[in-house]
């Protein structure tokens, strides 16, 4: 291992190395976790290297429309109604679907964690104000938030990312605040304060590394949900611009030809399912590894 992995505090970028170790051990033991890791890696690679791997230009209308999948043909997964190669479109679609999923949760996580840290750390009216606002978001169906935001800001990758990610702010804020509050009770916070560390130092040195495990777990679970959300928005015609291939929009377009060409809507759906399944398996493995509870009583 390089020196970066062997920092004195046993942390990589603030993440305790024992978490990494725990995770590796879980993956070794658990078949479900292995499947999850393989699926996630495979799809990430396909998405990242889509320009290199895709056989054709996803926008080029080079073939006969609505061709059925045939592995021996030029277009192994068939073509859409404009005669575009479905395999290439699906590979490019993976970029948007995974990218939006990751981006949305990243947006929700950064915003939520910051809010949660501030609320939990300062307490008092700051806490009240922030957490009451977050409470209200909890009481709002996410799709409405996303639909409203997209209709305000218009379609496009960034807008969809924010629209979907907005609904996740409260999850991260809540987890972070809860962890901060429980950590504040512990003695080493007193110790840190007595040594004279400043607020920010305490937050980043002591509090943040301890909230990391539940946040990672929640992050993974939400990426799965964000991908489903993106698919739903795209399907409703409220996602990224309709001409851009995403799994959700491909699926939506295919719906009009469902009786003649079932594969156009079934294939992207299968990909969504497999990817989300993989991420969920991955998330479950993380949850087991880090021992984060799924259901909190009271």
């Amino acid at each position: 291992m390089s020196s970066r992995f062997d920092t004195e505090g046993g942390r990589i970028f603030g993440v305790r190395t024992d978490l990494v170790e725990q995770f590796v051990n879980t993956v070794r033991r658990d078949l479900k976790a292995k499947i999850g890791v393989v699926i996630v890696t495979l799809f990430l690679l396909a998405a990242i290297f889509a320009p290199e791997l895709a056989p054709y230009d996803p926008m080029a209308q080079d073939f006969a429309p609505l061709q059925a999948p045939a592995l021996s043909s030029e277009t192994p997964l068939g073509t859409d109604s404009f005669g575009r190669d479905l395999l290439s479109r699906l590979m490019y679609g993976a970029r948007i679907s995974l990218g939006v999923g990751l981006g949305a949760v990243l947006f929700g996580a950064i915003t939520g964690v910051l809010l949660g840290l501030v609320a939990g750390f300062y307490g008092g009216w700051v806490d009240d104000l922030l957490m009451r606002s977050v409470d209200v978001m909890w009481a709002f169906p996410w799709l409405l938030i996303a639909i409203m935001l997209v209709s305000i800001f218009g379609q496009g990758v960034w807008n969809v990312i924010i629209a979907v990610g907005f609904a996740y702010i409260d999850d991260f804020a809540r987890i972070t605040r809860g962890e901060v509050l429980s950590i504040r009770e512990e003695e080493y916070m007193l110790a840190a304060e007595s040594v004279g560390l400043g607020d920010l130092e305490i937050i980043f040195e002591e509090v943040f590394p301890n909230t990391v495990a539940p946040i990672i777990v929640q992050f993974t679970v939400l990426v799965a949900r964000a991908m489903l959300a993106e698919a739903t928005l795209s399907f409703l015609g409220l996602g990224v611009k309709p001409s851009t291939p995403t799994w959700g929009s491909l699926l939506g377009q295919g719906r009009d030809f469902i009786t003649q060409a079932w594969w156009i809507s079934i294939l992207p759906g299968v990909l969504i399912m497999i990817t989300v399944l993989g991420i969920n398996l991955f998330g479950d493995a993380l949850r087991d590894a880090f021992d984060v509870r799924e259901v909190d009583s009271e």
Binding site: I258, G269, I272, V276, L277
Partner: peptide
């Protein structure tokens, strides 16, 4: 249950129609 939480509702609908 895992499959349930991994599919968008509208796609389940499409498969059911088919």
């Amino acid at each position: 249950a895992f499959f349930g939480i991994s599919m968008p509702a509208f796609w389940i609908g499409i498969v059911l129609v088919l």
